[in-house]
Design a protein around this nucleic acid. Structure first.
Lengths: 233, 233
DNA sequence: CTGCATCCGCCTCGATACTG
DNA sequence: CAGTATCGAGGCGGATGCAG
């Protein structure tokens, strides 16, 4: 008798929200945007999400053709969830919303979860195609245990997982600092001075990297939209 | 002791969803993307949304700087809600999700709400910058009582409210048919044959208009992703 | 009449326990 | 590891009340 709650509007947005608009769903999609993930991996990266909810969401997304079960090659019996082509098309939407939401990340609070692999999507969201330099080069990032890089070539920039040979720049930092920089709450310079960010390589490349990511290179951080939500602590 | 439910993740997407991820919020934003709207207008266009929910959502969005109250010029005391610049930046996200969700619009059911002004955003979402013809011209749409047009000039296409002079094409239809065409469940040709769409003007312009909207010009409609959700009727 | 606030029943959600 | 079952709490939807 499960009368699923829908908007009942004959409209693309409402139909889309009926599929991915419920709580946690887009965060599950985010996890899968980085590649196939197993049930327990998703659960571990989304603290607060109940196991029943995840099971229900995944079943629903599979039903709708957004997600599919795949077997991870090599490990044999291991199952995993992956985005279908339809689900993959959510990438620009999710990245766009992530970019928009950067405006609202506040101070890091003790109860906030941070995962280094989110930095990869953050970079992908921040990449500004209009500001790609004409220099072909690569920038490597080491966020905690995650390694990925930006490949600038032929006037296009792509975010790629894994290390890269002869990067023009290597940035090493922790996940929290990385997000804070991305949110404009911290400039790379300020992070370096406070020892939370280590940069290697050509400093001109650093500047070009900041440009393609739309980052301020000065010392002044953007003032927070809302430093701390006023609520009982 | 209202402990607002947040994701508590230090991440742009989670922060964004904490602002616009709750039920109805993005649909409220959609209504405001067409220009300022009054409380009761929003309510009337979103059947199923409770008055308390709308008040709460609006208050929250104002608090977050996404929406603001403005006074409609002319009428004096009339208040209205409008998007702030931050809220306006949600446009590509909402349009992207609307475009993605087109895949999931099913058959029109009696309980589905349809509004002609949604067609405007549908057109904006469908506009494919890569497929803009080199011919400068305008296409006018009359969806029930709503009139808007596409302005193609200088290799760019924009959706604009209101009528236009000397359009190369005029399309007249009802809201439901318009959405069905946009969702690919109905081709313009098929809609014309069944008398639900009237086209005037140069037929070459019609073809170019279909191209810029990414529409099939043939008779074959796309097979529905999911014709009718299997549920008790 | 518009623009909300209050109240209430129900459904979704979140946490824990349990099973293959 | 990958879910299913259960249950309390709270967000949601609808009706109603009320002030400008």
């Amino acid at each position: 008798m499960s009368t699923k709650r829908t908007y009942q509007q004959y409209c693309g947005l409402a139909s889309g929200l009926d599929v991915v608009g419920e709580r946690w769903t887009l965060l599950i999609v985010r996890e899968l945007l980085m590649g196939p993930a197993r049930y327990s991996d998703i659960l571990a990266n989304l603290p607060g999400l109940g196991t029943n909810l995840l099971a229900e969401r995944l079943k629903f997304l599979v039903e709708r053709g957004v997600v599919e079960q795949v077997d991870v090659r090599g490990t044999g019996a291991q199952l995993a969830y992956a985005l279908t082509p339809v689900g993959e098309q959510l990438r620009p939407v999710v990245l766009g919303l992530a970019r928009w939401g950067m405006e609202f990340v506040g101070d890091l609070r003790p109860e906030d979860a941070v995962r280094p692999h989110w930095g990869f999507l953050a970079v992908e969201a921040m990449l500004d195609p209009a500001k790609v330099s004409d220099v072909d080069e690569r920038y490597e990032f080491r966020v905690d245990d995650q390694v990925f890089h930006i490949d600038v070539s032929g006037g296009r920039a792509r975010a790629v997982k894994g290390p890269v040979e002869d990067p023009a720049m290597v940035a090493k930092t922790d996940a929290a600092t990385f997000v804070q920089i991305g949110a404009g709450r911290l400039t790379p310079l300020l992070a370096m001075v406070t020892g939370r960010l280590a940069l290697e390589g050509d400093m001109d490349a650093v500047v070009r990297c900041c440009e393609v990511l739309g980052l301020e290179t000065g010392m002044a951080a953007r003032s927070p939209k809302r430093s701390t939500p006023v609520e009982a602590v």
